[in-house]
């Protein structure tokens, strides 16, 4: 909606304050206080899924290794598959305690999304990301400072690649 149309629509709008859903359903107000027991049970639900998630992630990372070369050569199903795995890891790894892995996956997603507009991608850069994700999963990285430095370097490389691509598009 453009701004003028939005302003006109809002000028003709009605503003209402409705009772909360809780009040409508229970017929009374709730005094709101977080329930640590409920949060604990939700966390238990996450923990229950952790072993299966770790195994799936391990399998996915192996699949990613096989996808790097075909995904970087040209745009097609291997690139989409690689992006789908990275996208899932970005959204979920942090929930299961793999925050660093999720951050690397985020950086890889940003780079692969650039691939929608270009034929070839840098396989070395993609490979560095996948290796960093494998190391993060296996806990092989040496210290938090060391891990952080690696991820910062990867993020910087992706930022530069994105900036170069943007520059080329505008020329």
């Amino acid at each position: 909606m453009d701004e003028n149309r939005e302003k006109r629509a809002l000028a003709a709008a009605h503003f209402l304050r409705l009772p909360s859903l809780a009040e409508r359903v229970l017929g009374r107000q709730l005094s709101i206080r977080p329930d640590p027991r409920a949060i604990g049970e939700m966390q238990d639900g996450i923990e229950g899924l952790r072993p299966a998630y770790e195994q799936d992630l391990c399998d996915d990372l192996e699949r990613m290794m096989d996808l790097i070369v075909p995904a970087c050569e040209s745009y097609g199903p291997p690139r989409d598959r690689l992006h789908a795995i990275a996208h899932d890891a970005r959204g979920m790894a942090g929930t299961f305690g793999f925050a660093l892995l999720g951050r690397v996956a985020h950086s890889l997603c940003d780079y692969l999304e650039l691939g929608k507009h270009r034929a070839r991608l840098d396989s070395a850069l993609v490979s560095l990301h996948v290796t960093a994700m494998q190391n993060a999963l296996a806990g092989r990285t040496r210290s938090s400072t060391f891990e952080d430095a690696i991820v910062r370097q990867l993020e910087m490389l992706v930022t530069r690649a994105l900036a170069r691509a943007k520059e080329r598009k505008w020329r």
Partner: peptide, 29 residues
């Protein structure tokens, strides 16, 4: 924003259920 935590999801869902709703009604919305 993903990734979620149990507490984040709990608080967001509960806030949506227990806060009064301030609603705007206009054509098609």
């Amino acid at each position: 924003a993903k990734p979620i935590t149990a507490e984040l999801l709990y608080r967001c869902v509960l806030a949506a259920l227990t806060n009064p709703q301030h609603v705007v009604e206009m054509r098609n919305y």
